[in-house]
Structures are given as structure tokens and as C-alpha cells.
Design a protein around this nucleic acid. Structure first.
Lengths: 205, 205
DNA sequence: ATTCACCCTGTACTTCGGTACAGGTTTCGG
DNA sequence: CCGAAACCTGTACCGAAGTACAGGGTGAAT
């Protein structure tokens, strides 16, 4: 392992020291100047205002947040702030190193546990089956689906006609069929009917 | 890089071959017997029934799903099936290797883009965060907000006039201000702008 | 061979949405 | 006191949206 610099949010745990014996440390407040680039910045979620610290560093280096008591909310906050990794501060040496190399490679480190809970939360939050066509969508013909999806992007009939290579008249015809099949009365209701989170199929275009 | 075995869901792309020249390949249907352990199993989402394939392999090795057309839904499905990674099948050599080593280390590979969208979706669905007001919403006056929200329910101008006790003319006036302030051109765009899941502030009524 | 679903287009029409003028009141802060 | 912003209304106009007739064509299934 080569020598590298790391910025720590607080004093490293013995394990962390053991994992990265050659790391050069820096402590906050981090200098704003043209200091040597920091490859990875480990920040503890025990610090006050750590999300701000994370987003402040995120532009200049990869950030890993380590927590004494990991939680899903904290993980989400971390990644939202621009962190590339989130792990338990008492992770073993191998894991710490794995996190580090993953993050250096440009990846995100998420533990399977956190990921699993996030996935489950997503599953629950998505209406019934995520990414599933809304009621009645399957009854639309291929062309009708294209028109319907175009409407959900805010396109006017003229836009759609141009985009799909048909006349405005034909767009209206398709829309009429769509309204009838999906039992909506106008394009706004169509948008409300189709615009469900997680539903964003491209019809091949 | 040491020699290792990989099980592929279909024939590897040249890039993939370049990234892992020493990989020993296996193709599905994967033998159930006591074959030599596979370290990483790359499975394409182009295969029929790939989620089942993933969950079948997940117990015996790490699985990375590579997709020709990545999407959030597919990513979620992949991780739900037990995958440890999800990436574009045309990812460059360095990325493929990074994914591989991350996954071997026990981590999950998620691209920042997918992660970002997942985070945003989670944010919206978390009970603690009832949805942030969309951009510009705070610039609307109280009455304008009522009108705007009514539009997002699919109400016509006449409906809104009745509901809020004003003339259709006044509704149009408010809508004009709303369009200008939120920089949208019509009610469909307004709906698309405002209709974020989880966003349902009561304007006091 | 006929039916059916799908795809495309035209003319004509009504309704709705949106804007451009016009006018008014109230409230609130400089 | 005055300006600014919010709130409300009217007439008029234009274009978009949507519907109702009309007519084409294909291809697959019965």
C-alpha cells in the first residue's frame, strides 16, 4: 500500500491507525489553501455539523463518514451530503482498507445491511410495485404509450407530432383513445395518473 | 492481479475481457455441483429471468449485474435479488476492475448516479421529511398556492373558481402569476413541477 | 373473406386555457 | 402620503385541447 494522506474528523481509532499506518493525518478545521490534495477524508458523524463538513470536503476529495452508531437516516444524510462511503467506525482493518480502496476508485461504499434497509424502504415507498406500469397502461398500444409518455414530459400536441413523426390530428386521435382506455378526462389527469414515482419507462426511443 | 474465476451471464464484451484477461469463464446454466468456488459472478440484465439467476448465485458467490440500459428500478431489483454490484456493461476497464475488487472485499458497488436517485426517493418517502416545497413555491402568495395546489389535483379553472370562491377570471389571473413566478408555461408543466410524491402542504385550509 | 385492432389523416366544431387590455379594493411599510 | 403587492373582476381575443364526423391503409386471426 502506498503512502497517502487522509484527513480525519477526529482522532483515529487504533484500528484505523492499524489499517492505514502510513497515512498522513489532518484535523479540522481543514485548511482552505492549496494544501496537498487529500485522497480520502474520513469524517466522524460524532462531530457537530458533520454534514456541512462533508459537503465542504466533498468537492475536493472523497469523503467517508464513519459512525459510532450507524443508522439509515445518518447514512442517507451522509450520502446526500456527498459522502462516498459510510461505515461503522469500529469496522475491522480489512473492511476499512476495502472501503478506502473502493472510494478511491470512485465507487460508493455502502454496507449490505444499510443497503438492504434502504432497498426495503424504497420498496415500501414505491406504489405497490415499483416501476410497474400504472393501472391500464398495459391496455395501450405501442404508439399510444409513446404519446402518453410524451405527454408526461409536458410536451404539447404539436411537440409530440414533431417528435413522433405524425400530424397533430393523429396525436389527438391517440390521446382520445388513451383518455378512454385509462378513464381520464384530459392530459393533466393523464399526467397525474402516469406520473407515479419509479415509473419511467422509455419506450425504446 | 491474481487468477480467479468468473461466471458470466452471457458472452463478455471486449472491454470486460480486457479488464479480466485471466478470468476463467463459466456460462449458465451454472452447474449446481461442488464446482470450484466462483469469486464473482457477472450476470447481464439482458437475460430472461436474470433476477432469479442472481438470487440463485448470490448464496455461493458475489454477483455483479451489468446492464445495457441501467435504470433505477433495475438496480433496485438487482440489489434486492442479492447482487453486490450494478453497473453499465460498457463501463471502462478501470471501473470494471474497481467494481470487481470492491465486491470481492464484501462491499456493494453502486454508482453515484443511482445512489443519488435512490437517496432522493428515500428522502421523499421518509416520514421525517414530508417533502420539500418545490423550487419557487415559497415565492407564491397564499392564494396562489391554493390555486396551484388545486391544479395539481387535476381541477379545471371552473372547479377551482367554485372551490375557492372566485371567478374563473381570477383563477386565470392567479395562474398567470404562478406561471411567471415558477417559470412554467402551462398547467401541465406546473403539475410536473409541483407533483412530487410526498409534497402535500396544507395551505391553511 | 371478413372481422378486428392498429395506424394514419382530413375538415369542422366546441370548449378550455392563457393572455392582453381594462378596472377596482385592501394592507402594509417607507 | 405614496408605492407596492396582494387580491378581485370584467371584456375580449387567440390558440391549444379535445370531439365528432369523415376517410384511408396494414396485418393477424377466425
Amino acid at each position: 500500500m502506498h503512502v497517502f494522506r487522509m484527513a480525519l474528523g477526529e482522532h483515529p481509532s487504533p484500528r484505523w491507525r492499524e489499517a492505514f499506518p502510513e497515512a498522513a493525518l489532518q484535523y479540522p478545521p481543514f485548511a482552505e489553501g492549496p494544501a496537498e490534495p487529500v485522497q480520502v477524508c474520513w469524517i466522524s458523524s460524532g462531530l457537530d455539523g458533520w454534514p456541512a463538513l462533508v459537503s465542504g470536503q466533498a468537492g475536493r476529495s472523497r469523503v467517508v463518514v464513519h459512525s459510532r452508531r450507524p443508522s439509515d437516516e445518518e447514512a442517507i444524510t451522509a450520502f446526500e451530503a456527498g459522502a462516498h462511503g459510510y461505515c461503522h467506525c469500529l469496522a475491522n482493518v480489512a473492511l476499512l482498507r476495502a472501503v478506502n480502496s473502493t472510494v478511491i476508485s470512485g465507487g460508493l461504499w455502502v454496507s449490505p445491511g444499510v443497503m438492504g434497509r434502504m432497498i426495503r424502504t424504497l420498496r415500501r415507498s414505491l406504489p405497490s410495485d415499483p416501476g410497474r406500469p400504472p393501472i391500464g397502461f398495459e391496455r395501450l398500444s405501442a404508439r399510444e404509450r409513446e404519446v402518453a409518455l410524451a405527454v408526461t414530459t409536458g410536451a404539447s400536441n404539436k411537440d409530440i407530432a414533431l417528435e413522433l413523426g405524425m400530424t397533430e390530428r393523429t396525436v389527438k386521435m391517440h390521446l382520445g383513445s388513451i383518455f378512454r382506455k385509462l378513464e381520464v378526462r384530459d392530459r393533466v389527469h393523464l399526467v397525474l395518473h402516469l406520473a407515479q414515482p419509479g415509473f419511467a419507462p422509455d419506450p425504446g426511443s
